[in-house]
Design a binder for these strands. Structure first.
Lengths: 252, 252
DNA sequence: AAAACAACTTGATCCACATCAAGAATTTCT
DNA sequence: AGAAATTCTTGATGTGGATCAAGTTGTTTT
């Protein structure tokens, strides 16, 4: 049961061009030559263990990081001891973009499980992008995409019900796992209910109740961190808001 | 009373180096020469009137825009006819960064009053930033700052009370007006209560009630769109959350 | 294996804010 | 200027989700 395969860090490809994540994390439209040059500045660090910080708010910024395996939570510690979870990051995703602004990290990043990352020294990336227009273009796009994603999150937090939030959350993971070649309907969430609630602007209890309710409604099966989505179309209906979910059901 | 001065568009400075907004919208650290070159690609369009769209979601992206006078609301129209207000933008602020991603606007921008903008054709800006490392650096910083600002908004919507949201909103305008050489405590808001509520994830009625309450508590004076902040320190206390606002009051 | 702890679930209660409703003030239209 | 449509305010009521409380399950420590 618990014999999940442990990632062997000795197998990590040391070149971007051989990396299975390349299509995700590497700017499209780079020539093989470009990739080679980009590759030359990337550093592979030791793996982090669950609970290790990749960086903390206030740390001097020097590198962007691409998750290569495992998962990471970013959060901003707020005045009164609490925190706001800003995101959960899967292999192929880039973090640290918010720190370019003033050369220091504005939020913290912590490994949710054993996690490996590639570090991209930003000053070198910048220099490189000066002489590689396609890289520069991709950097702009990447930063812009980040803005767009946060914008969606604003709508989620500003207008959506608890139900819609959790459905959106689950489908986001579904899509991202699928992109990475994993099952879109059967996966493990590496974060706690508390962290999900914090991220979605909900109380832990609400998240727990929603999981139970979704299960009762045969939308999914859940046992602790293991989630199986049973009715993805209906989850999408829920995301759409209003009561289209139920009407779809009766329309069948 | 209503004889507010109308901005004369004939006085608009046609060169960035003479523009009073330069310190706000122009990347710091550009040489006079750099500014000249940047200036050469900027287009000044005709002014927009209240209700005119600068662009709409789905429009092809070609230019970033800097507000030079007036104010703009950005919003993303959501499926069911409603909208999510994403931001309110004042002179010196840059909009359109979210559209770089896939060459089309993901949100809409509409003038809240008579508004003038500078357009910066992005492809030209990009080319220019290739040969001007300092411009490139500033572009990265600008994009990163945008991400950071949205992150703050996530915390606002995820964790803050209605009271904290409105206080944050008011102080944001206070600070921005101050930066632009206007009064930090006496200003006009160009958007409706409805738009404020939408932006802050609150109902119109809640916003209205909060204005009344803040006034009753002598935090401010408000008449329609005209706001006078009377106790800025206490507003900051409210932003901090918890009940520090009241305790500060009694500590005096 | 027992003890201590952390994560999760479930039920009961509460409250901040939404929603509904209606009137007042303001702006826009004719 | 008067009518019509908006925008804003205020009050009454409702409710989604928070909070409080307690138990359960799973994990870590010793």
């Amino acid at each position: 049961m618990t014999s999940r395969k442990v990632v062997s860090f000795e197998n990590i490809k040391v070149a971007c061009k051989n990396c299975s994540l390349a299509t995700l994390c590497l700017p499209m439209g780079l020539t093989a030559d470009d990739v080679e040059r980009l590759d030359s500045i990337i550093k592979r660090g030791r793996p982090y263990h669950r609970g290790d910080h990749l960086y903390r708010g206030g740390d001097k910024f020097h590198s962007l990081r691409v998750i290569t395996s495992g998962s990471v939570k970013t959060y901003s510690p707020n005045e009164d001891g609490g925190e706001q979870v800003l995101g959960f990051h899967l292999p192929g995703e880039l973090i640290g973009l918010d720190a370019i602004q003033d050369d220091s990290h504005t939020c913290s990043a912590i490994a949710l499980e054993t996690t490996a990352v590639c570090e991209i020294p930003f000053s070198q990336l910048e220099s490189l992008s000066c002489i590689m227009p396609s890289l520069q273009h991709q950097m702009y796009r990447l930063l812009s995409r980040e803005i767009g994603q946060e914008t969606e999150m604003l709508t989620l937090l500003g207008k959506k019900s608890a139900e819609e939030r959790l459905a959106t959350f689950l489908l986001s993971f579904s899509e991202r796992f699928k992109q990475r070649g994993f099952s879109a309907s059967d996966f493990f969430l590496s974060m706690s209910r508390h962290e999900i609630g914090n991220y979605l602007g909900l109380a832990v209890e609400t998240v727990s109740r929603l999981f139970t309710r979704f299960q009762d409604e045969s939308l999914l099966r859940v046992e602790r961190k293991h989630v199986q989505l049973l009715d993805i179309p209906r989850l999408y209906d829920i995301v759409q808001g209003s009561d289209s979910a139920k009407s779809t059901q009766s329309r069948v």
